[in-house]
Design a binder for these strands. Structure first.
Length: 714
DNA sequence: AGCACGCCGACT
DNA sequence: GTCGGCGTGCTC
């Protein structure tokens, strides 16, 4: 009987393709097997999703699978289901996700090579060839080269056409040269399952006892564990001891590799049962970790999103740590939200999903409290001193800096300056009412370019001529300088010349940062200036003075979560303070009464939550409505815009109750070539959502020219 | 994504 | 007339 298989490719094409399986390959192919198959005019890597012996009647001329690249054990069905659900949810191809599940096994590749023929050599020597053809033949005359290399070297857009015509003329040959790579043999069959964990005494009234019960029930259940990092880790450790009894896996997901450092001591308590896994592990270490996990020797895996794609089973517990961190929201290749991915996987595996945070997203906290999924460990009392200053920053640096910093430095303690903006930038402001010109599209304050005399939006890149007067009160607008990190460095150096200071922000060299961090730890650097980038890199509780500079600038973003983000930043900055009365949190702000700033400085989550919830209810933001953001992207702006117009129209027609905000074009987001159109939808009822997601799926199938993705905003 | 095919302007 | 640039749509 002839066998067939459905393949998915690691391409942005969300459909499967049916192939015939030659008899000699039949026995080597299972769901998850990596194969080479002809697609159009090329031969590329694909993944088997399903093997069948019957074909639905179709008009296709079926092609044969060429080659089997790797056929280890079949992927667990739970894992394949997870991949397919994740792909479906993100309107993208399962192949793109399966590519991430490959692990460190280096697969054979088919590499095309361009080879000169004897006829080609003759013509080259006779000097008959000119221009581009000659240039190309010259390059290939020495040794065979790949088209990819030629494309980089020559930068011709029409390289493929050229190659084709030269091949037809018989001057070159394009050979598909298969290069077999060493395959990493996986230990087959049963692996050692011994495990000795220091299982602690589990009190009945433990705050996490409901999680123990859920683990025992072996079915999907979600929890939110709120509380300070250290307390949380202790509870998680107890839960892990419980979860890893027989043969289950535990995944601990962190938002970024940087955060793995904070888990080192916990991991060492688990011995070889625990292992770190993330993309920065290089060759050998990665293979070792992979092998240890697949064989079952290590079953507590700590690291980043890469963990979600480990094809192991059964997974008993998935912890998403610091769930509020927006780094979990991945924008590219393929875009998906790690938190959502973790939930999909946990559901497929019948695992417990444990979201943890010291300052959870307000909507998440609300929903969790309502459904009994919340475990709040409470807050530790903060006894450091807080102080707000409404003074102008320059003025403060001139007058107050020495007064505040002097005693701290003298005591041999350290200072941290937290600033939200890099470098220098100018802006315009009305001295009367505080009006600031904003971008009409993005609603954020415009940056004033003094040299050009223009106002520029740093978000969308649009520029416009400067306004002279305030539209509100008619006063002359004044040019100010946004005091970014550079400004701060200069002023502080001027005021305190004998100080060792470090600037920690994105874009600095890795080695330089590492050097700084060492010196900060040893106390050689007394003052640190940092942006958000610095927060996860500094040790909590290590500073005696933290100065937060103008946290309110984040509130200008056109985002209903701006206030929550501002609160989180302040909260995180305050965690760097040693918690004692002699420590001080100084906030330089014009809005000390803004809830996110007031409560952020006190690290008071309950109060912030209460006020923020009230505000959200008033404006019908989540959790009191369902907000969905839609993004259409592609290289061709006309196509993207066309698709968005059609999307808007169809949404209007199909969902009359839906509130559509936008569309908004982002002309040139940083250096991206991709053009993007965004719109937001507000649903009053969450039950409408199912129909909406169904509709979006259909729409994306019909419009392959513009890629569609959507996020549910919590 | 990457490739072919097909339609237009500018060159020997 | 053809070459080669770009827009469009398909790949089992």
């Amino acid at each position: 009987m002839t066998a067939y298989c459905h393949l998915t490719f690691p391409l942005p094409v969300n459909q499967t393709f049916l192939y015939r399986l030659p008899d000699e390959l039949k026995n080597r192919v299972r769901p998850g097997t990596v194969v080479i198959a002809p697609l159009g005019s090329r031969k590329i890597k694909g993944y088997v999703l399903e093997v069948t012996d019957s074909v639905p009647g179709s008009g296709f001329q079926l092609k044969d699978v060429c080659e089997v690249l790797e056929s280890g054990p079949a992927l667990p069905p739970e894992f394949l289901n997870f991949i397919q659900k994740l792909a479906l949810r993100n309107l993208s191809s399962p192949g793109l996700f399966l590519e991430q599940a490959e692990g460190p096994v280096r697969l054979a590749e088919i590499k095309p090579q361009v080879i000169i023929t004897s006829k080609g050599k003759e013509e080259l020597q006779s000097g008959e060839l000119k221009g581009k053809n000659r240039e190309l033949l010259d390059l290939v005359s020495q040794r065979a080269l790949s088209p990819v290399f030629l494309k980089k070297k020559l930068k011709w857009r029409d390289l493929n056409a050229k190659l084709k015509s030269l091949e037809q003329a018989g001057l070159i040959e394009i050979k598909q040269k298969a290069r077999k790579a060493k395959s990493l043999a996986l230990p087959p069959g049963q692996a050692p399952r011994q495990l000795s964990l220091p299982v602690g005494f589990l009190a009945e009234d433990s705050p996490v006892s409901s999680i123990f019960q859920a683990l025992q029930a072996m079915k999907f259940q979600r929890f939110l564990l709120a509380g300070e990092a250290q307390k949380r880790q202790e509870e998680i450790f107890k839960i892990i001891s419980q979860a890893v009894d027989g043969e289950g896996y535990v995944f601990i997901l962190l938002p970024e590799i940087e955060q793995t450092k904070r888990w080192l001591s916990y991991a060492s308590r688990l011995g070889s049962t625990a292992v770190f896994y993330h993309s920065r592990l290089s060759g050998k270490k990665r293979s070792e970790a992979w092998e240890s996990i697949i064989s079952g020797k290590s079953r507590v895996v700590i690291g980043t999103r890469a963990i979600l794609f480990l094809p192991v089973k059964p997974v008993r517990l998935i912890v998403v740590d610091e769930v509020q961190n927006e780094l979990y929201d991945l924008a590219e290749n393929p875009p998906f939200d790690v938190r959502e991915g973790a939930q999909i996987r946990a559901k497929e595996e019948g695992a417990v999903l444990l979201l943890t945070s010291s300052c959870p997203p307000v909507s998440l906290y609300y929903h969790s409290a309502g459904s009994g999924e919340l475990i709040d460990l409470g807050q530790t009392d903060r006894c450091y001193t807080r102080q707000f200053s409404r003074q102008d920053l320059s003025h403060w640096l001139q007058e107050e800096l020495k007064v505040e910093a002097g005693p701290v430095l003298q005591a041999g303690r350290q200072i941290f300056f937290f600033i939200n903006r890099k470098g220098y930038a100018g802006y315009l402001v009305c001295p009367g009412c505080g009006y600031v010109p904003r971008c009409p599209a993005c609603q954020i304050p415009l940056i004033f370019d003094k040299k050009k005399g223009e106002l520029v939006c740093r978000y969308c890149g649009q520029s416009m001529s400067r306004q002279e007067t305030c539209p509100g009160c008619g006063r002359q607008l004044k040019a100010g300088r946004i005091k970014g990190s550079q400004f701060l460095v200069e002023r502080i150096k001027k005021a305190l010349p004998d100080l060792n200071l470090a600037l920690l922000e994105e874009g600095e060299e890795k080695s330089k940062i590492e050097g700084y961090l060492k010196k900060i730890k040893s106390g050689k650097i007394q003052l640190v200036i940092g942006t958000e980038y610095a927060l996860p890199r500094l040790s909590p509780g290590s500073f005696s003075l933290v100065v937060v500079i103008e946290p309110e600038i984040g509130l200008n973003l056109p985002d209903f979560k701006a206030s929550e983000q501002t609160f989180i930043r302040l909260f995180k900055a305050s965690e760097l303070l040693a918690n004692r009365p002699s420590s001080k949190l100084m906030v330089i702000t014009s809005m000390p009464d803004q809830p996110s700033i007031k409560y952020g400085a006190q690290a008071d989550y309950p109060s912030f939550y209460r006020e923020e919830l009230e505000y959200r209810q008033l404006l019908k933001y989540p959790p009191f409505s369902l907000l969905v953001s839609l993004t259409l992207s592609g290289h061709n702006l006309r196509r993207v815009a066309g698709a968005s117009r059609q999307l808007g129209e169809e949404l209007n027609e199909r969902f009359p109750a839906l509130e559509i905000i936008g569309p908004k074009v982002k002309p040139r987001l940083w250096k991206k070539v991709q053009k993007e159109v965004k719109l937001y939808l507000r649903l009053a009822e969450s039950k409408e959502f199912f129909a909406l997601s169904q509709f979006l799926e259909d729409f994306s199938h019909q419009h392959s020219q513009a890629r569609l993705s959507y996020r549910i905003l919590l």
